[in-house]
Design a protein around this nucleic acid. Structure first.
Length: 280
DNA sequence: TGCTTCGGGCCGTTTACGTCA
DNA sequence: AGTGACGTAAACGGCCCGAAG
C-alpha cells in the first residue's frame, strides 16, 4: 500500500487564499499576470511552457560535464557492471543498450523497503510496476521541493540513497513535474476565470452606465441644468480618457503636458456617483 | 557555419496497481 | 470472497532543444 499524495501533503487547492499549497505551486504566476497586462490571452497561456521552468534551472549546471565526473562511481551497487555512462541517464542508450542487465537490476534493487510484492517469481515481467514506499516517496518529495530537476550526480546519489535505479528517480521527477504543471495550470485557469468574471461584471456595469447616460442626454432640461460634470477628458494623441477635476491644472494637463493647452472636451456628463475608480 | 550526436526535458499514452461499490 | 470500474502513478516512446564535437 503506497502512501497517497494526500498523506504526503501533496494536496493542492485552487483557492487563492489557501496557503496549503507547496511553495512550488504558485498563485497565478507573475509572468502570467504580466502577460495578462500587456499581452493577449493566448500569450498568457504560454507561461508554463517547458522552456520557462526547467531549462532555466539547468542552464548553469552543464549536465554533460557533470556526467563525466560521475563516470567512475556511477555503477556502484546500483547499476549493471558493464554499462557505462548510458545507464545513468539518456533514455535511448539506457533502454537500447542495457537490456538484460536492466532486467536483472530491476529485480535486484528496485524493490521498495516494505513491499514484498506478493512473492514475486516474475523476473521476466517486462514492465513490473512497483509502488514506491512511503519513505521513498517522502524523500523524493523533499528533494523535489528543493529543486525540481536533478543533475546526474544528484540523481545517482538519490537513487543510491533510496535503493532505486537512477532511471526510476528520473521518471519520478518527470512525472512529478508533470503533476506540478497540471496543478499550476489549474490554478492559472482559475485565476483567468476570475479575471473573466470580473471583466464581465465591469463590462456589464459600464454598459448600464452608458445606457443611463444616453437616457440622460435625451432629456434636455435635465442635461442643461447639470453642472459641468466630472469630466472625462480625452487626450487626442494617446486617445486615453482621464478623469479630471474642474481646475485648469487638471489631471489631463499634468499627465499629458502636450495636451495642457488644449481645450478639454467633456465626453459625457457623468453623475458623480457614476465615477468609480477602476482598480487594476 | 551547418551537420551530427548526445543528453535531457516534456508530452501523450500505456500499464500495473490500489480502492471501492 | 470475487469482480469489474475507476483513479492514480510508474514507465515508455517519441519529439524537441541545446550543447559539444
Amino acid at each position: 500500500m503506497g502512501g497517497s499524495d494526500d498523506e504526503l501533503c501533496l494536496s493542492l487547492s485552487l483557492g487563492f487564499g489557501v496557503t496549503t499549497q507547496p511553495s512550488y505551486i504558485h498563485r497565478p504566476s507573475n509572468s502570467m499576470i504580466n502577460h495578462l497586462r500587456r499581452s493577449s490571452w493566448k500569450d498568457a497561456f504560454q507561461v508554463s511552457d517547458r522552456n520557462v521552468d526547467s531549462r532555466s534551472f539547468l542552464r548553469g549546471i552543464d549536465v554533460n560535464r557533470l556526467r563525466t565526473a560521475v563516470d567512475g562511481e556511477e555503477e556502484n551497487g546500483v547499476s549493471s557492471p558493464n554499462s557505462t555512462v548510458s545507464s545513468i541517464s539518456g533514455k535511448r542508450s539506457e533502454r537500447e543498450a542495457v537490456g538484460d542487465e536492466a532486467e536483472a537490476e530491476r529485480t535486484s534493487c528496485s524493490r521498495g523497503s516494505d513491499d514484498e510484492d506478493g512473492g514475486d517469481g516474475d523476473g521476466d515481467a517486462s514492465r513490473k510496476k512497483l509502488r514506491l514506499s512511503k519513505e521513498q516517496s517522502l524523500v523524493l518529495e523533499e528533494t523535489f521541493k528543493e529543486h525540481n530537476t536533478l543533475n546526474a550526480q544528484q540523481k545517482l546519489a538519490l537513487a543510491k540513497r533510496l535503493n532505486l535505479r537512477p532511471r526510476q528517480v528520473e521518471v519520478w521527477f518527470q512525472n512529478r513535474r508533470a503533476r506540478t504543471k497540471l496543478k499550476q495550470t489549474e490554478v492559472d485557469c482559475e485565476y483567468l476565470r476570475r479575471c473573466c468574471e470580473n471583466l464581465t461584471e465591469e463590462n456589464r456595469r459600464l454598459q448600464k452606465e452608458v445606457q443611463e447616460l444616453r437616457a440622460l442626454k435625451l432629456s434636455p432640461q435635465l442635461y442643461m441644468h447639470m453642472n459641468p460634470p466630472t469630466t472625462l477628458t480625452m487626450c487626442p494623441q494617446c486617445e486615453r480618457v482621464a478623469v479630471s477635476s474642474f481646475s485648469s491644472t487638471s489631471a489631463a494637463s499634468t499627465h499629458h503636458p502636450v495636451a495642457a493647452g488644449m481645450q478639454q472636451r467633456p465626453l459625457m456628463p457623468i453623475a458623480p456617483q457614476a465615477v468609480l475608480p477602476i482598480q487594476r
